[in-house]
Design a protein around this nucleic acid. Structure first.
Lengths: 307, 307
DNA sequence: ATATGAAATAATGAATTCTGATTCTTTATT
DNA sequence: AATAAAGAATCAGAATTCATTATTTCATAT
């Protein structure tokens, strides 16, 4: 068994089992990948992909298992490479972060700025996805770190460190009656249409639970994947917005009134996670430390000033 | 980077950095291993082994890290091979167990017998060691499963399932006065010399703690790694023996009297553990299931009848 | 039925990997 | 200190492996 064979299998899976395309990505020629797969199947003695004649359709049962371990194996090899780079104190490299829109837009920018000053040679990649996708990316070693609020709690193959907590706030166009209410209640939130996050995103689970527990049912007029879109629809008059408190920008959002809602919903904890068996290069670990220590302070400041 | 290079590095570490010996084990010739190491160091750009001229002395800092990840990488490749074997329903294979003497001698035999009936083609290897060594073996993928009482509790890279609990009993030559005492107390155990397990073995930690908590200090005349040796010294008159209740054999140990001590010491829990990222072949998983379900019943029966 | 897109096969040439012989060092012994 | 022995690096050659191009075979869409 050779690492290149495993690489081809993975590329194949990521190219929807189009051999030519997989070969392209690997900077190889089609017959090479074709042979790698053949060799692997021959050595293991079992078919790894389902076929219809010459067309590859997908993985077999066994192929799925093999693919997972192939990823783990190559991740091991990548770790070794990383150790080498690190020991040479090579200042270049890639920091691959996966996160939700909220973090990328409202929390990360100042941290990334500081990180870049320290490591100008490091390329920073910001991948986005739903919380479940983020977890998947870290586990597949498609990214180095995931910054995430949910679904990351206690996966055995992840190491997650809590960083800060946040809650929701309500935003509405200035002059909107809800802004006058002293303490907003769950009931009042149900009076009028809401604009908030879609399911699977940014604490939407706990949000809905809070209403359900009281036997209430909010009227969600529009739901979107990120706060910017929500704010846009709020401005367009579709309803009151409920967004993460982090996502209210005192400068850019002066035309929107804000009301704290932390007495109505549980606090969410944002964590930064890595795959357990991942070797983090020094600069990657430094980012993790930076995020853990600085993001907490930053967010607290933001929450205090914006409140 | 090639898997063979990693294999050579590992063999090198396991052959005390004697290149020729490492080559032998790999069925290669000395220059091959020498080159593998050289290539690996060249690719990573850092030295992995400390040298004195041409002699290899040991790993560098970086080498230690690389070795660990090399093991993980090859374990991944081995998992893939195992999936292949398994899918072909190849009845042959190896079941590598690591355990302490007590389990190997007093618990495993009937289970191994049943397992062999079911899988006559599978070679069974019984490795022995101290609890810490057992953990290490599983983590290094030197064995498939470890059966172990201590130090296995919550290692993040292990999955451990509790199987049964046991405690200590006292053994002494028939006629010994201690056998007449109704409930034996810690104080009485301190009256006369004891023969028991050495440190680092089979619950010796909790054993000593129990005395220390009462401010007592037992007179340990002889300590040994397993119950058979302890019983031998008891028969020779060196003192009273304290062994695992499992280790008293009603048939073979008729010349020794037994007294239960479970009111004096905490119960120990024996677990069976595998490396988290390990793919277990069907027969290996079957053994695990067999052990988990049958060992509990077996031990309970033994403890009841022997009491 | 035909054309097209895609995967397998075959043959070639380049690169690699292992080996055996040799040289160079280090360590142990006298 | 000289010598012997053990062990590691170096080198050149043979065998193998690898990726490539060219070609054939096959499935799908029109």
């Amino acid at each position: 068994m050779e690492l290149r064979q495993l690489r081809s299998l993975i590329a194949l899976a990521e190219a929807d089992f189009n051999v030519s395309r997989a070969a392209m990505r690997l900077h190889l020629v089609q017959p090479a990948v074709s042979q790698h797969l053949k060799q692997l199947e021959e050595e293991l003695g079992i078919p790894l992909v389902r076929r219809h004649g010459k067309r590859l359709l997908g993985l077999t049962e066994a192929g799925t298992q093999v693919l997972a371990h192939a990823r783990a194996t190559l991740a091991g090899a990548a770790n070794i490479q990383a150790i080498g780079q690190d020991q040479k104190a090579d200042p270049a490299g890639v920091l691959r972060l996966a996160t939700t829109h909220t973090q990328a837009r409202y929390v990360l920018p100042p941290l990334i700025r500081r990180f870049r000053q320290r490591y100008p040679e490091v390329e920073i990649q910001l991948h986005q996805g739903t919380p479940t996708q983020l977890v998947d990316m870290v586990l597949r070693d498609a990214v180095d770190l995931a910054i995430c609020t949910e679904a990351i709690g206690n996966h055995p193959d992840l190491v997650a460190a809590p960083c800060y907590r946040w809650n929701r706030c309500l935003v509405a166009p200035l002059g909107h009656p809800i802004l006058e209410l002293k303490p907003v209640s769950l009931e009042r939130l149900c009076d009028q249409p809401l604009v908030t996050y879609v399911f699977g995103f940014t604490g939407r689970g706990h949000f809905s639970d809070a209403f359900a527990r009281e036997g209430l049912k909010p009227k969600v007029a529009v739901s979107a994947a990120d706060a910017d879109i929500i704010k846009t629809y709020v401005r367009e008059g579709f309803g009151m917005g409920v967004i993460a408190d982090l996502a209210y920008d005192p400068l850019l959002d002066q035309d929107l009134g804000k009301r704290d809602l932390s007495h109505l919903f549980p606090w969410e904890v944002t964590r930064i996670a890595q795959a357990r068996s991942k070797y983090l290069r020094t600069f990657q670990r430094d980012f993790l430390d930076l995020f853990q220590s600085e993001a907490a302070a930053l967010v607290r400041e933001r929450q205090r000033s914006g409140a």
